[in-house]
């Protein structure tokens, strides 16, 4: 039986009080509760404070370029679908630099779990606006306040009928661990947008700010009801819903692919007799 100790303890480079500590804790718990051992998973990240998460627990790891975690994770999953592949990176990495990959991942529905640490600000580069920063937020890079509308990842994912769309909060570790377990069990692309405070650079969306607003979706809420999900997805401000906002049973990319249906590519052999026949067609 796998235990949380199997995932190790590492010294981190994060500020005390950063939401990343709690997300890391919830991730480990979600993995243990899923009965997954470190060698069975692959963690993929990009660049940012959140992207360092993958270095703070035992697992297979690929820490790539800023914004490009999703393509790397997609390629790795297609090569070896026996791996549980998890993307862990921030709002800037996944929604900004990697925005096009996020949209494509929603459409492709490869069986990945994408955990977005969303603190609505850039931490690693010291406090510039992120795609989810709220309007009017003043930074050294946006001295007159952010003029752009914040990106709503939940609404975009629901609108695209992504197969699993959830929101968590770093201040509710048990709840978040439960979401991660559900996402890992889900077959298909699973987004968990995790709200978290940035103690150094976001003095507006603080722990207390989120704590006051976040509420768990009621028991009777039906995440398969797309219209209801769209309504919840647009809810932001005084009240912010947490939980599985939308899910469906769309077939995964892998399940539709004639080659992948037969097993992982990485275990596939090359039959040169077949190639001989293919080449005959050129004569």
């Amino acid at each position: 039986m796998v235990s949380i100790e199997d995932y190790g303890q590492f010294e981190t480079a994060w500020c005390p009080g950063c939401g990343n500590h709690s997300i890391l804790e919830a991730l480990k718990r979600g993995l243990v509760d899923s009965g997954l051992e470190p060698y069975q998973i692959l963690l993929v990240s990009g660049i940012g404070q959140a992207a360092k998460t993958v270095h703070y627990l035992k697992a297979n790891v690929f820490n790539g370029l800023h914004g490009r975690a999703v393509p790397v994770a997609s390629g790795a999953k297609l090569a070896n679908q026996d791996l549980k592949v998890i993307v862990a990176s921030g709002d800037g990495c996944n929604y900004g630099e990697g925005g096009n990959h996020f949209l494509a991942a929603l459409r492709r529905n490869i069986d990945l779990t994408m955990i977005v640490h969303n603190n609505q600000v850039y931490g690693l580069t010291k406090g510039q606006a992120s795609p989810t920063t709220q309007e009017g937020f003043v930074t050294k890079a946006q001295p007159e306040g952010v003029a752009s509308l914040p990106f709503n990842p939940i609404a975009v994912a629901v609108a695209m009928q992504a197969s699993f769309v959830a929101r968590g909060f770093s201040g509710m570790i048990d709840h978040l661990a439960g979401l991660i377990k559900e996402a890992l069990a889900h077959e298909g692309f699973a987004l968990i947008d995790v709200l978290q405070p940035c103690v150094s650079f976001n003095k507006v969306n603080t722990f207390a700010w989120y704590k006051q607003r976040c509420y768990k979706l009621p028991e009777e809420y039906d995440p398969t009801d797309w219209q209801a999900a769209m309504q919840r997805a647009m809810e932001w401000g005084d009240r912010i819903p947490l939980g599985i906002i939308y899910r469906n049973q769309r077939p995964t990319f892998e399940s539709r692919h004639s080659v992948l249906k037969q097993g992982p590519l990485v275990r596939g052999k090359t039959d040169l007799k077949k190639l001989e026949k293919i080449m005959d067609k050129f004569s």
């Binding site: 790539g64 390629g75 999953k77």
Partner: peptide, 12 residues
Amino acid sequence: INMAIGASFAGA
């Protein structure tokens, strides 16, 4: 290119 890097890392 990043997909191919991921696939190759995993062994394809």
